[in-house]
Amino acid sequence: MSRLEIYSPEGLRLDGRRWNELRRFECSINTHSHAADGSSYLEQGNNKVITLVKGPQEPSSRSQVDTAKALLRISVNITKFSKTERSKTSHKNERRVLEMQTALVRTFNKNVMLNVYPRTLINIEVHVLQQDGGIMGSLINGITLALIDAGIAMYDYISGVSVGLYDTTPLLDTNSLEENAMSTVTLGVVGKTEKLSLLLVEDKIPLDRLENVLAIGIAGTHRIRDLMDKELRKRAEKRVANALSR
């Protein structure tokens, strides 16, 4: 493999970004209004994710009934064609995917007001159409948007992003080329606070650098929160205008 210059001396990354810049972030909600109660489509760089929220609905089996709160279920479908090379196996039931699902459920369990929907099931399906690094963050963002679209009560936004550490420079919102070349940290931050709901580090990082990485990550997630908020407000205004003109 040819040597890629991950971070040039001029301070530019492979795709021309600076260290503290996010990738292109575009999102829309209510994309599948007939298929689900809440839906979103998110593009974060080359990550493309569709999220469908179905519920709160009646659970299909008795075992899923919780008399105190709603049950949250998330299934992640990573399509075979989501990477440059088509994978032979469907990723369902892979330990890595199961882990992601568990992490997502536990992240949103604490942020969705499940206690206001007792005896119900909230089913979330995420379809990853294309992935290019930092997928966990995109999943979190997509789910947050879709939950809001479904009108499910939440305490705050949760926004996710991954940050890499190249030598001593933290690089915000890594793509897959960068992700393969260095260690990355994935964060899930609640709203505009500094509270981390999710924190995953999968490779070696010097302990003393971690704080730096977290700081830029939190700033990144706050920016993403604002971008999501802007889109949602734009959408809401449009709806109000539609309703008034009728």
Binding site: V201, P206, A215
Partner: peptide, 23 residues
């Protein structure tokens, strides 16, 4: 002094600084 792995898979949101303190 290398962080090999960190896993906080959801659960109670915690302040970043207190997480660092834990590390």
């Amino acid at each position: 002094r290398e962080v090999v792995q960190v896993s906080k898979a959801g659960g109670l949101p915690m302040d970043a600084l207190s997480l660092m303190e834990n590390c």
